[in-house]
Write a protein that binds this DNA or RNA. Structure first.
Lengths: 340, 340
DNA sequence: AAAATTCATGTCAACGTTGTCATATTTTTA
DNA sequence: TAAAAATATGACAACGTTGACATGAATTTT
C-alpha cells in the first residue's frame, strides 16, 4: 500500500523503455514517437510518478528565489509575497521567504549561506536592503541573480534589473491635493534621513509647497518611522505645539492611522478639524474612520514584476538589465476637508 | 575571481585528505582526529566552502516543511509565518509557504505534488484545511508528516500531532465579560456553520448566556465570514432591525472593526451606545478607536509549537502523536461600557 | 541503390553529497 | 607478546535525475 515513491526507472521498467526515454517524455523533449509517448504517459499516470525535484536540481540551475525583506508591515509583506508567488507558480519556481534585520550586519552572511548552499539562485531585495549598493555587488559577485525594488524616478545604476517606484511624484500629487483643498499648514510625519521612500515623499511634499509659493516649515516636519506607534508619538508631538496644522501627511497608512487615533484622543474631528492623508493604500486605510485618502501602491503588481524579471534572469543566463518604473495614483476618500 | 563554488572534493584536495573525511568534519561525526579536524576546518574557512544542500538532500530526508493556509488575514498569516520561521531557523529547516483555496478541490493534488516531488517532508495544516480528516489521512498515506492546528478543547483524534485552541472557553469568557458589565442583548457576528472556530466561539457564547439564565435569540446571531466587509454588512443588517443590542461579539477583530466602522456611520458612539468586542488580538485591534476589547490568540507561539512538533516528527521516524492545547486570555480595552 | 540525413531510442557518466564496508593504525586486553 | 578492540581514514556505491554521445531504423537525397 504505502510503498516507496516511484522513480523514473520504475516507470521505464513498466513501460518497457529506457529511463532516458521517460525523462524525454517528462521534459517534453523532441524526438519521441507519439506511440511511446502515450504509453509512457499512461504508466506515469498509473504509478502516479512525480519527478524528484531534488535530483533534478543537481543537474540544473536552482529554481528557487528568495524574497528578502525587513519590514514590519504585514499587509505589505503579504501583498508582496502573493505577487511573487503568483509568478513562481506560473513558472514552476519556489519561493523562500527571508525576513531579516538590516541593522544586524548579518544580512550578507545570511544571504551568502542560502546562495552558497544552492538553496536559491536569485533574490528580490526590498528597501532598505535594496538601497545598499555594496550588498547588491557582493551578491552579484557570488553569481546570484538580483532584482531590487527601490524608491526613485529612475534606476540608480545598472547593477541589476531594478523596479523603481516614484515616491516623489506621488508625494507631490497628494500634497498638491491638500493644497487645492485650501490647506496651507501641512505637516509631514515620518521623515527619516536613512529611508529613501520617506525622502522621496518628502521631496515631493517640498516641491508641491514651493510650487504653491509656500516655504517648508521645519516645525511641521516630524521625524519617525513607518509604524502606528510612531504615528501616535509624532502626532502627539505636533499637537503639543502651539500653531497647529490643518492637514497632516502621513508617510504611510500606519502613521496616518496613528495620527487619526491621536486626533481622536484630542477630540479633533477628522477631517473637519484636521485633514489626514496616508500613503500605500493598504487594506487598513479602507477600514479606519474616516477612510483615508491615500496613494495607491500596487505592491502585488510590483512584486510580480520583480519576480518576473528575476525568473527571466535565472532562465536566460545573459545578465541584461531591464528596468521597470511604477507611477502611483491618488486615492480620494474621506479624510480630507475642503477649507473655505 | 568569480570561480565555481567549491565542493567537498576541493576541500579534500587542499587539505590532503579524502573527501569522506571532510564530510565527517562537516557533519561533526565521531572518529576524526583533532589534528585533521582543525586542518580541514581551516581549508573550509579559506575556501568559504558551503555544503550543497541539494546534493545532501538526495541522501537524507527532506528538511523543508510547508505552511498550508487559506486565510485572507494578513496579520494572522504573518504571525504564523514568523512563529514557524523562528523554529525552522533554529533547527536548520526550510519553510515553503503554500496559500491555497480550500474550496477549489485541488488542495490534495497540490500537496501531493510538493510532497511527491520531495519538496517538503511535512506540512502544517491550519483551519479550515486542518478540519478535513480525509485530507489528513491521504497526506499521511503519502508518508508525509502532518501537524494540524484546530479549534477545540481536545484533539479530535489521534491521526497526527495536533495543536488545539480552545475557542469555546474563550468565547465563553468574553461573553461573560459582557454579561458582568450588565449587557443582556448581545449579538453574535460571524456565525458560520462550516467554520469550527466560529462554532466554538458560538458555543461559548451560548453557554455564557445560558449560565446567566438568558436564551439565545436567533435574531441576534448573524451569519457571515471573518472579514471587515462582512462585519460591515452584518452590522448593517443588525442595525436595520428594530430591537438593537447593547453589545456585539465579533467573531474576530476584523468583524469587530467592521462593526465599529458601521456604528460610526450610524452615529452610534462606542462604547457608550454600543459595546463591541473582537477576537484574536491582532495588531489591528490596538489601532482602532476605541481600542478593542478582545481575546489574545498567540498565533506566533501556536505556530512555533506546531513547527516544533513537526520538526520533531521529521527527525525521529517514530510517529508518536503528541498534542498541545492553548488557552486564550481576555484582553480588556476600551470598547465595552458598563451598563447601569 | 548507395550515401546522407533525419528520427527514435539507448548507454553511460556526471552532479555533490552520505552510507557501507574495508583497511590501516593505535591502544587495550589476556 | 599475541590477540582483540578501539580509533582513524579511505574506496566506492548509491541517491534520481539530465546531458553527451552512440547506435540503429526510417526516410530522403544523390
Amino acid at each position: 500500500m504505502s510503498s516507496k515513491k516511484p522513480t523514473i526507472k520504475d516507470v521505464a521498467r513498466l513501460a518497457g523503455v529506457s529511463f532516458k526515454t521517460v525523462s524525454r517524455v517528462v521534459n517534453n523533449e523532441a524526438w519521441v514517437s507519439d506511440d511511446i509517448k502515450t504509453r509512457v504517459q499512461a504508466v506515469i499516470a498509473q504509478l502516479n510518478y512525480q519527478p524528484n525535484r531534488t535530483a533534478r536540481l543537481m543537474r540544473t540551475a536552482p529554481f528557487s528565489l528568495a524574497f528578502v525583506y525587513d519590514n514590519p508591515n504585514s499587509h505589505y509583506v503579504i501583498e508582496m509575497q502573493n505577487g511573487i508567488l503568483s509568478q513562481c507558480r506560473q513558472k514552476g519556481f519556489e519561493l523562500v521567504i527571508h525576513p531579516t534585520d538590516s541593522h544586524s550586519g548579518q544580512v550578507l552572511q545570511e544571504l551568502t549561506t542560502i546562495i552558497g548552499s544552492n538553496q536559491v539562485g536569485g533574490v528580490i531585495l526590498t528597501p532598505p536592503l535594496s538601497e545598499n549598493r555594496e550588498l547588491v555587488q557582493q551578491l552579484l559577485a557570488q553569481q546570484a541573480k538580483v532584482v531590487r525594488i527601490v524608491s526613485g524616478s529612475a534606476p540608480p545604476d545598472d547593477l541589476c534589473p531594478t523596479i523603481y517606484v516614484d515616491d516623489e511624484q506621488a508625494g507631490f500629487s497628494i500634497t498638491r491635493h491638500l493644497l487645492t483643498q485650501g490647506h496651507r499648514r501641512i505637516a509631514f510625519l515620518g521623515y527619516h534621513k536613512d529611508h529613501q521612500s520617506s525622502l522621496g515623499r518628502y521631496r515631493g511634499y517640498c516641491a508641491a509647497l514651493h510650487e504653491a509659493g509656500l516655504t517648508v516649515s521645519e516645525q511641521l516636519v516630524i521625524t519617525g518611522d513607518f509604524t502606528f506607534d510612531s504615528g501616535v508619538a509624532m502626532t502627539e508631538q505636533l499637537l503639543q505645539r502651539g500653531d497647529k496644522p490643518s492637514a497632516l501627511f502621513g508617510c504611510n497608512d500606519e502613521i496616518a492611522a496613528g495620527a487619526l487615533f491621536t486626533a481622536r484622543m484630542h477630540q479633533l474631528a477628522v477631517p473637519q478639524d484636521l485633514s489626514i492623508v496616508g500613503f500605500e493604500n493598504s487594506p487598513f486605510s479602507r477600514q479606519t474612520w474616516p477612510r483615508l485618502t491615500t496613494v495607491h501602491q500596487p505592491n502585488a503588481e510590483i512584486a510580480a514584476k520583480a519576480a518576473d524579471l528575476l525568473i527571466g534572469l535565472m532562465l536566460e543566463s545573459e545578465q541584461h538589465s531591464e528596468h521597470c518604473g511604477f507611477e502611483l495614483q491618488l486615492v480620494l476618500r474621506d479624510s480630507v476637508s475642503l477649507l473655505s
